[in-house]
Structure formats: structure tokens, C-alpha cells
Design a protein around this nucleic acid. Structure first.
Lengths: 201, 201
DNA sequence: TATTTCAGCGTACAACTGTACGCAGAATTT
DNA sequence: AAATTCTGCGTACAGTTGTACGCTGAAATA
């Protein structure tokens, strides 16, 4: 197929991004991946890397952005499913776990860099998680009639539990993921129940 | 001072362990630290490393063990303080945050390797966290008269929230840590309240 | 059509890595 | 006192890293 220069360049750029994601598989931190490894995986010369990113860090931030995007799409998907009826918590957890098992490396990236070595990455991931938390918080305010302050605390606690469980899910079998999901669902119910009765005081 | 061989060897071994902990400061994953860096920091020849550990992994597992030990001491300390009266949740959170700010690298190690690159490290850390959770769970059973099953879920949720908040605390100022502590305290109350009312059904 | 632009390549180099090997000399055992 | 054990060191080497530099040839522009 014929392509102009821009398209061509974008395509190689994407190859680099895909290669980086592929390398996260199982064994690499973003900051631990070498530029040459990425280039090798992408099938281009090491020095060509610089035509697309000044740095590995720049690539890294791009990956975090893409992962955040995926996270927001996840939330949108959960909303759609919820509109069709059913337990909000159950659907959310199942959607989340499904997302994780289908996009392991995306979630791995977020998790690892969340506690990782580079402040820039850490901040970027925290920002994404905050967006996520705030969306959830808004949802709680409008659907459960909680005070914004309490709703935010509830959302934050829920996100913490879910992400932490997600970390476990990465190493787990499908069966274990199911058990895990059930536990998390109950734990989220604790939080919701607790937040509601807390407000009554 | 005079020393026999065993003591001498143990001392150099400890130097290596301390050096590794020091290198975790701010910028290194365990798996990303080079053997030579550790040797340099410890002030010994690179090749002498092998007199003490076969591998960097072996050193790593030792560090995880030591960190787990610190974690258990933390819990003991919290217990002692609780005996003197006061809100269990408040004291626990404050003790935890105090521990983190005073042993940043120990907690950093646990956090990073929890989501890290090496399955062996991940498992080791998860085991330590599980011990921690179970101790908390036992405490809840005996002091709050909850069913073991529910108590365990409550403990797990609490640990997840606290550890996740701990990750934030590592980058935060003292003032921010205080605010964070207050939020976490409320969130733990949610969980406790929720678990209690959940049992009534 | 002639000129310019620029993505991608190959070569090169200094810095670093893990670790094999053999030696020195003090602590320990005989 | 003599023999042995063993921690720590220095040298050495092959492999990997990031990146500077200059070239090529096709695409874009004039």
C-alpha cells in the first residue's frame, strides 16, 4: 500500500509504542527497558528511535497517556452496561477484571509506574487514577445522593481496593480471578454501606 | 576492635544489605540495581559479592525478608499503643504513617517489588502482606466479634487502602501526610461500619 | 524537472555490566 | 610451628548500553 511521509512516520512511531508495550510483558519496567531492545522489537535501527522520541522518557509518558485513555474507555464501557440494569458494583468489578485480563500490559504499566522509579511517570499515573476517581465520585454524588466530600472519600477507597486487587489478578488464573472478584464486590459493598451510614451522623 | 572470621563476614554481608537499601533511595528498583553499584556503595570489590550471595536475587529476597520483619514490628508497636487507650483506627494509621516516613526505603522496597518485575519478589512481598492481613484479621475477630470470613474481608480491604495510601505518602510532605492520614482514617471507618452492618443481614 | 527535506541506516566509541580465574594474606585448625 | 581454609582483591573479557556523526534514497516542494 502507498503512504505519504506523515503516515509512514506515524506508523513507525506506533511500532515503537507497540514494541514497548510488548516488552512490558512479564519482565520489564519501563525505566528498565533499553532503547535498543525497543528498536530491535520494533524492527528498526537503534538510532532511528530519535526520529520519534527524544528520550525513552518521552516514549514512557506517551504510553502512560495511552493507558489512561484505555482506563477511561473502560469506565465508559461499565457505564453502558450499568444502564442496562443490574448491580452497579458487580458490573463495575466484572468490567474492570475483564479489562485487566484482556489488557494485562496496559494495567501492568500503570501499576508498575505508579510505584516506580521515575517521579514523572509516577505523577502521570497518579493523575490518571485521579481522573478515574473523580469520575466515580461524580457518579456517586448524582446516583446515591451523598455529600461530595463523603462521595469522594468513598470513591477513593473503592479505587484503591480495586486497583490493589487488580494487581493480584495479573498473576491469577481465571478461577482465582472470579473468586477475587467476589471478594472485592463484598468489600466495595462494605465501603458503600459504611459511607452511607457515616453520612447519617 | 578484634573480630573472628564469622563476625567479619557477617559484617560485610550487612554492609551489602545496607548498601542495597541505600540505593533504593528515590531511583532504583531491586532488579535494576547492578551488583557493581552495590559493591561500590558497600566499599568492597565487585567480585567479593559472590562470597555472600550467589545472585542479586538472593540479596533481594533477604531484603524482602528484612522488610517483612520491620512490618511485623510495626504492628507490634501499634498494638502496644492501642493498649494504652484511644481509637484503634487512628492509632494504627498514625503508627503506620510514622513508620513509612521513618523507613521510606523499606516501604518503597515492599511497594515496588509488590508490583515489580520478578515473580519471586512479588510472591515474597505478597506473603508478607498476607501475614500482616491475617494478624489484623485475627485482631478484628477477637475485638469486634465479627465472623472470621467477614473479618478477613474487612482486614484485606483495610490493608489495601492503607498500603495504597502509603504509596502516596512516600512523595508527600508532612502536611500532606497528615491530611492523607485523616482521609484514610475515615475510609477505614467506612469499611468497619460497612462490615458490621453487612453482618447483620 | 531540479532542489530540498528528512526517515532510517551503519559505523563507531566510551561507559558500564556480570562473572571467570588466580593470588594474597590473615584467621583457623592440625 | 606447619598446614589449611577462605575472605577479599585485581585483572580480564565478552556483551550490552546510549548516542554522535555522516550517508542514502525516496518523498515533498519548487
Amino acid at each position: 500500500m502507498r503512504m505519504n511521509r506523515q503516515q509512514q512516520k506515524l506508523q513507525t512511531r506506533q511500532k515503537l509504542i507497540d514494541a514497548a508495550f510488548a516488552l512490558l510483558d512479564e519482565n520489564k519496567t519501563l525505566t528498565a527497558i533499553s532503547l535498543r531492545e525497543i528498536a530491535r522489537e520494533a524492527g528498526i535501527a537503534p538510532t532511528s528511535f530519535y526520529r520519534h522520541f527524544t528520550d525513552i522518557n518521552e516514549l514512557g509518558l506517551t504510553l502512560v497517556d495511552e493507558s489512561g485513555l484505555a482506563l477511561r474507555q473502560l469506565m465508559r464501557k461499565a457505564r453502558q452496561r450499568i444502564e442496562k440494569g443490574g448491580s452497579v458494583i458487580e458490573i463495575s468489578v466484572h468490567t474492570f477484571m475483564e479489562f485487566i485480563t484482556q489488557n494485562k500490559n496496559v494495567f501492568r504499566l500503570l501499576l508498575r509506574e505508579h510505584t516506580g522509579t521515575s517521579l514523572a511517570f509516577r505523577s502521570a499515573v497518579m493523575r490518571e487514577i485521579q481522573y478515574f476517581t473523580e469520575e466515580l465520585s461524580d457518579y456517586i454524588v448524582s446516583h446515591l445522593q451523598l455529600e461530595p466530600q463523603i462521595a469522594h472519600l468513598q470513591a477513593e477507597a473503592m479505587v484503591r481496593v480495586v486497583f490493589s486487587a487488580g494487581a493480584e489478578a495479573l498473576d491469577a488464573s481465571q478461577l482465582e480471578v472470579n473468586k477475587l472478584s467476589d471478594r472485592v464486590i463484598t468489600q466495595l459493598r462494605f465501603i458503600q454501606l459504611g459511607a452511607s451510614s457515616y453520612q447519617l451522623k
